[in-house]
Computed example of a mutant assay.
Amino acid sequence: MRKLLEKLDRFLAVFLMILMAAIVIDVTWQVLSRFIVGKPSSFTEEIARFLLVWIGLLGAAYAFRTHAHLGLDLFTSKLSFEKRLRADVVAQLVSFGFSASVLVYGGIKLVQLQLLLGQTSAALQVKMGYVYIVIPLAGVLICIYAIDNILCVRERLNQPAHGDSLN
């Protein structure tokens, strides 16, 4: 299981790098076509917008995995080590619940609705359901990562000698 998650982490990191490179190239071309060529490209703004949505949501899942999100530990820092770990489990469960209900369930409903209605983007004529598929995808990733984080906390709680650092 751990090796599969490591491969998923590596794939997500590389995919995010590719998306970042694509948005840099896209916006660079948009600026060049507008100011150097004099004829702005009609589709680059839409591509940049869609890439930003994908980078934001997948980046949030990656940040959740690497514990890079902003956290307020004002109250938990005063707790004992075991109570901090238990508070972490509660936070992971809340994150799992939010992701499962809003991102996965709500995202699937949104994608289904968009595909049913057949809404397409203005410049690229891409079905918006395909653009929004990243919402449930990011939700699934966050759910997987929350479960793994809970399992890691359980392992730390079962260790006989605890260190005093939270990861």
Rank of each mutant, 00 (worst) to 15 (best):
M1L: 13
L4P: 01
L5S: 10
L5Y: 15
K7G: 10
D9E: 13
R10M: 10
F11M: 13
L12F: 11
L12A: 13
V14T: 12
F15K: 06
F15L: 15
I18F: 15
I18H: 13
I18K: 13
L19H: 08
L19W: 08
M20K: 09
M20E: 15
A21S: 08
V24I: 15
I25D: 14
V27D: 09
V27Y: 14
T28A: 10
T28S: 07
W29T: 14
Q30V: 08
L32W: 11
F35T: 12
I36V: 14
I36L: 12
V37Q: 06
K39P: 14
K39G: 10
S41K: 07
F43D: 13
F43T: 08
F43I: 13
F43E: 11
E46A: 08
E46P: 07
I47H: 04
I47P: 04
R49H: 02
F50C: 06
L51E: 10
L51T: 08
L51N: 11
L52A: 11
I55E: 09
I55T: 04
L58R: 02
L58V: 05
G59K: 01
A60L: 01
Y62D: 02
A63M: 13
R65Q: 06
R65G: 05
H67Y: 02
A68F: 03
L70R: 01
L70A: 07
L70C: 03
L72M: 07
D73L: 00
L74M: 15
S77D: 01
L79S: 04
L79K: 03
F81Y: 03
F81M: 12
E82P: 04
R86S: 09
A91S: 12
A91G: 15
Q92T: 04
Q92M: 07
S95Q: 04
G97Y: 07
F98E: 02
S99A: 08
A100V: 06
L103F: 06
V104W: 06
G106S: 05
G106T: 09
G107S: 07
V111K: 00
V111Y: 04
Q112L: 06
Q112T: 15
Q114V: 10
L115Y: 03
L115P: 01
L116K: 07
L116D: 05
L116W: 08
L116I: 12
L117M: 02
G118N: 10
G118W: 09
Q119V: 04
Q119M: 02
Q119P: 02
T120A: 03
T120D: 03
T120R: 01
A122H: 03
A123I: 05
G129L: 07
G129Y: 01
V131F: 12
V131T: 09
I133V: 14
V134Q: 02
V134H: 00
I135W: 11
A138D: 00
G139F: 06
I142D: 03
I142P: 00
C143E: 01
Y145M: 06
I147M: 11
I147F: 12
N149D: 05
N149V: 01
N149W: 02
N149T: 05
I150T: 10
I150R: 05
L151D: 09
L151Q: 12
C152F: 10
V153S: 07
V153N: 03
V153H: 03
R154A: 15
E155M: 14
Q159S: 09
Q159G: 02
Q159F: 05
P160T: 15
H162I: 11
G163C: 06
G163K: 14
G163V: 15
D164A: 13
D164K: 07
